[in-house]
Design a protein around this nucleic acid. Structure first.
Lengths: 197, 197
DNA sequence: CGAGCGCTTGATTGAGTTCAAAAATCGTGG
DNA sequence: CCACGATTTTTGAACTCAATCAAGCGCTCG
């Protein structure tokens, strides 16, 4: 059971077999079907999810009812509203399941306990936060400087994996354009005989 | 000397007077005039700056030579390319001085040393990273969902301080619009007799 | 005091949106 | 396994917001 998460923690966070035994009981693993909502805007995020298989996303819904996707999360990625989890504030976004998924669920107990047990986890966590910042910075820069086509090309090169597994309108939502516009961008790329894969 | 940074570290990072004595020698303080470039795109960021007085910014320059401001940094804020600093990669952006500033300069030695000395610093750092993520998430969401006017209104309410101290074209650059567009947004707001302060 | 920079204004263009509807694809039950 | 309804993607036409280009104004500071 949950081999994948264990492997991940040992490889990435420097957790030893002994340390693992001390925290394994705090971990919950679950299979969640497509469509499941794991976190709602306004709720406090009290769990962090690690995706073993499947695909999740986080997104906001604005006043006019439009969705804006903040993140996709496939195999071996994390997803949660870190701020809500950390600061205990109401979450700004939803998290739901795009593809039937197997996830590992970590709560505050886990976070506290593992930091007591394994100092290497704290270092890992810092690295993970820096990584999140890196991705967000890149995205902000792209939103400031690039048009629809460039954003799309950046997306498929950065997430080749995700590209084929989500409906196009979700990619459009992530890019900050309409599905119609993305369709046209793709038509134009095809016309110039661009080969995605 | 550098009272402000000392106070900040004691109040925010839980540094004690004794701990301070152990690291004070690693800290460098400097007065930098408007226009000074502290970090260049492509260079490795080897220092983190804490602003005591004055105003700094970080920004990218795209292929067509346009600047895109990522962050303003006024009193009691940090500025640096955290990723370049942390991962040792070439920096993606510039950091320069908008208003004559007094800054405190921290390097890797400092980071290492203070973490050895003060565990509370590590916790503070984690909190700071979460805070950075929070701001970036908010900004991404705004770039995805809001038009020029809404972004501007969000900006002046979030950074009332900065608004009055930087030229308008820099705010435009931060918002991802042209100076002309910002000028028109402001004219329109004035027409509807909107009072900023 | 003049040159340059920042801000404004106007006219025009253009990228992307909106609205509407058809075509393609998906998935689910019979 | 096929058929049918729903969802997704595509296409078209009109429109909108912001960008671009160009010119003028006002201020500052050298």
């Amino acid at each position: 059971m949950q081999e994948s998460f264990r492997d991940y923690m040992m490889a990435q966070a420097g957790i030893t077999a002994e340390q693992w035994e001390l925290i394994v009981s705090l971990i919950q693993e679950k299979t969640v079907p497509k469509g499941t909502i794991l976190l709602r805007q306004g709720d406090i995020c009290s769990e962090v999810y690690f995706v073993t298989t499947g695909l999740l996303r986080s997104y906001t819904v604005d006043d006019s009812g439009k969705e804006h996707i903040l993140q996709f999360s496939a195999e071996n990625w994390w997803i949660a509203d870190r701020n809500s989890f950390y600061y205990g504030e109401p979450s700004l976004f939803f998290v739901d399941v795009i593809e039937d998924a197997r996830i590992t669920i970590l709560d505050h107990d886990f976070e506290t306990r593992i930091q007591e047990i394994a100092p290497s986890y704290t270092r890992f966590n810092t690295r993970a936060l820096h990584n999140a910042i890196r991705f967000m910075q890149r995205r902000i820069n792209l939103l400031l400087s690039a048009g629809a086509e460039e954003r799309y090309l950046d997306f498929i090169s950065l997430y080749p994996n995700v590209t084929l597994r989500v409906p196009q309108w979700m990619i459009a939502s992530y890019l900050g354009i309409t599905p119609e516009s993305l369709s046209r961008v793709r038509r134009e790329l095809a016309r110039r005989n661009f080969k995605p894969h």
